[in-house]
């Protein structure tokens, strides 16, 4: 449930931001993520950022997936 997708914050004005999602931009609210900065990727649900995505964790998850996939090749 709860469709939420990653968007890149391009500019911030008070509690709102312009965010880019695969080449389209939309105004989103930062009420729930006041600490978000320009350049952060946030998860957007119904026009609100619900958290800041952790790029380091994403990379680690992908590394873990690669390791699992490599185990399969052995």
């Amino acid at each position: 449930m709860c469709l939420a997708i990653p968007a890149l914050i391009e500019s911030i004005e008070d509690k709102e931001a312009e965010a880019e999602i695969g080449g389209i931009t939309r105004r989103i609210s930062l009420w729930l993520t006041p600490e978000a900065k320009v350049g952060d990727y946030v998860l957007v649900h119904t026009g609100y950022a619900i958290n800041i995505l952790d790029e380091g964790e994403a990379e680690e998850t992908l590394n873990l997936l690669r390791e699992i996939a490599e185990l399969a090749g052995e």
Binding site: L53, R66, I68, A69, E70, L71
Partner: peptide, 18 residues
Amino acid sequence: KFITEFRRSELAEGVISQ
């Protein structure tokens, strides 16, 4: 970013066989 890399078929194949 954060979407397409989690749809990659070659990684999926490895995880499935594991």
